[in-house]
Design a protein around this nucleic acid. Sequence first.
DNA 1: CTGACGTGAGACATCTTTGTCTCATCTGGG
DNA 2: CCCAGATGAGACAAAGATGTCTCACGTCAG
Lengths: 183, 183
Amino acid sequence: MAVDREQVLRSAAALLTRKATATMDEVARAAGISRATLHRHFAGRDALVRALEELGIAECEAAVDAARLDDGPAAEAVRRLVRELESATGLLAFLYTENQLFEGEEQNEGWARLDARLTALFRRGQESGEFRIDLTPAWLTEALYGLLAAGAWAVTEGRVARNDFAHMVVELLLGGALRREGP
Amino acid sequence: MAVDREQVLRSAAALLTRKATATMDEVARAAGISRATLHRHFAGRDALVRALEELGIAECEAAVDAARLDDGPAAEAVRRLVRELESATGLLAFLYTENQLFEGEEQNEGWARLDARLTALFRRGQESGEFRIDLTPAWLTEALYGLLAAGAWAVTEGRVARNDFAHMVVELLLGGALRREGP
DNA sequence: CTGACGTGAGACATCTTTGTCTCATCTGGG
DNA sequence: CCCAGATGAGACAAAGATGTCTCACGTCAG
């Protein structure tokens, strides 16, 4: 039976998110295939990570598309975005920590595209008066990634309920820890 | 001349924060010593990471002490805390991503102590009415770690000015991205 | 039925990293 | 000055991961 490339990538992402140093053999076993077959589909560890990166970028872009970032209030767009991104957070958390590994090499342009779209959303919110202007769009974008990763990790560690993930991330990102004075 | 253990640990932290997979040889060269000497001071890679963990915990506990978390408004205590933690964020960011590696093994009890102190601070803020109650203290603690790591990474990548680090982290954590309606 | 195709299992050489050891060199205190 | 202690450089084997290959087996289409 032909191997399901998508399913292999998903189980690899799940394993590598928990243990970033997992060997090719462990990845193969986690996917329920042999190391030889894994190698037939992905030339090496690098190729596997690159494929995961492509998958992660594709999922994020799909989430960004589905969230319709240009529609309605920016805050609502952020809420839709986090909800859409939720299923990709495991993979995203892994790639977020893995990015630092590609030191000298150029990073995938997909990240730049995503950054641009997210940054534009936060800038739109600032220009509409919804978001404060002392936090730069670039930082808000970074913070979103960081909170998604922290949230994913907290969920796997059992410190946050899976159902609360989106609420915890979105509410902290938008509203912060302080109680609102106004209505 | 006897090796300065502290200085070795600091340069190791700086390198490993950028490249988590650096070899012992790279760590040694970064510290300006030979691999043999590095090995005389740290039995192996594990021992090195453990020593970095001890250093990170010690720095965090010192910062927590200096921030006097029990004094005055909880929000002000958080501001002091982030300011005090700023110098340790590089090391903290590395340890934050490295923690996932100690899968089966027990993790250093120092983290549990720190978690307890930070969680207590957020709980105090909730009980005093400063902080909202729909974000759990455990999540706020995780989010603080995540934002510190994201901020440290954003600074090294040049996306955030080093001088803005504490402001960006604290303001997002406490106030969020939305503009305040009230005064 | 039969053959092509993909897979699993394992062998194998290679490469990298690691941990240990030896020896020459340097430095600082007595 | 002289020696003890620490360091640097390099050799070395062991361990682990990787990439490649072969061969047997199962499956599916023709």
